[in-house]
Amino acid sequence: MNVKKIAVISVLLTAALIAAACITSQFLSGKEFYYPMAMLIIVTACVPFFISFEKNRPSARELVVLACMSALAVASRAAFYALPTVKPLCAIVIIAAVSLGPQTGFICGVLSMFASNFIFGHGPWTVFQMLGMGAVGLIMGLIFYGRKIRSSRILLAVIGGIISFAVYGLIVDISSVLMMSTDFSLSQILTIYASGLGYNLSHGITTAAILLVAGQIFIEKLDRIKIKFGMF
């Protein structure tokens, strides 16, 4: 199945669920249902990708390269444990997406967040991080995969930085809003988002910097393996 179709299905499904959630929340009292519901919606958003991945029965080579990229991402997060804002993980996911395609990018993002939380500890935020990183991979893959702009260093870095700042930050901070806010007033939501702004901004900037310095070198290495493997 085409990755765009899967993405559309996923978005439609999510929208339908959100609508359903809004309607039911009229009948349920209080905000206590919001968080479980959001988790449910997020898991559902990932499901079409998972099903299509399973149905396609990925070849050994695809699987190994995907595992390899995700493991590099996880290892990089572990290596820079002391500097929380320097997360090469995001840059590696973007590189995987750009050179292996949006679907691979999505799975790589989801997987590396999931697996790295075996080291850093799972929490309710795990699903948000997974979807957030998956979405970064998906979007970057849709923009860059198989196109000429792929070889533009600056474009890759700038767009990569913006997407990782905006998309990942937005999705992950939903978790904080749902967790911490009590009345969901605009001022409260903005306060919570603002408290995460510095972190998200530095995350975006470091991602852009890493892509600028190492992006093309890394992509070249993957290209070499693709040729050696005769894959994709």
């Binding site: 998972f50 990925p58 699987l63 595992a67 493991a71 997987l111 697996a115």
Partner: peptide, 13 residues
């Protein structure tokens, strides 16, 4: 397949 993928990541890290 996804389960295997997770296992492989845990092996590689």
């Amino acid at each position: 397949h996804l389960a295997l993928l997770v296992l492989m990541v845990l092996r590689f890290v």
